[in-house]
Amino acid sequence: MRLKVEFTTEPFDLDEAPAHAVVAREVIAAAELDAVDVGPFGNTAEGGSDAVLTVVDSLLRKTLAAGATRVSLQVNVIGEDSK
């Protein structure tokens, strides 16, 4: 199945991206996902279930280790994987 993950990390800093936000971008960029959209107030990515679930695990572990005090996320089933 295909999944879509939407997430934010906190605390926010509008002047400079905090370390946990930079780590989140790096995790998403390195993953085998498609339809990635990274922004200051939310991020989304889509992909096969294995890829999305793997990146969610890595995202949580690495952003918390980098100083995030909250990670909000939502995962939705958006269809069947075409592979």
Rank of each mutant, 00 (worst) to 15 (best):
T54Y: 05
D81A: 07
E80R: 03
R70N: 13
S82N: 02
A35W: 13
S72T: 06
F12T: 07
E16Y: 05
R25W: 09
G79W: 00
F7Q: 11
A21W: 11
V27I: 12
R25V: 12
V56S: 10
V55C: 11
P11H: 04
F7V: 05
G47H: 00
A66F: 00
E16C: 10
T9Q: 03
K62V: 04
R61D: 12
V36N: 12
A19F: 10
D15M: 04
L33K: 08
V55N: 07
R25T: 06
A24P: 02
S82P: 02
A17P: 10
V23Q: 01
A19L: 13
M1F: 02
V52Q: 00
G42K: 11
F12K: 09
A65F: 08
G67F: 01
V56D: 04
D57S: 12
F12H: 11
D34N: 09
L14A: 12
A31C: 12
V56P: 04
V75A: 03
I28R: 12
G42I: 03
V77K: 00
L3P: 00
K62G: 02
G42D: 01
E10A: 10
P18L: 05
A30T: 12
G42F: 09
G42N: 11
N43P: 07
V55M: 14
L53C: 09
L73H: 13
P18S: 13
V23F: 12
A24F: 08
A29D: 15
S82I: 00
L33G: 13
L14S: 13
E46Q: 06
S82L: 01
V22R: 12
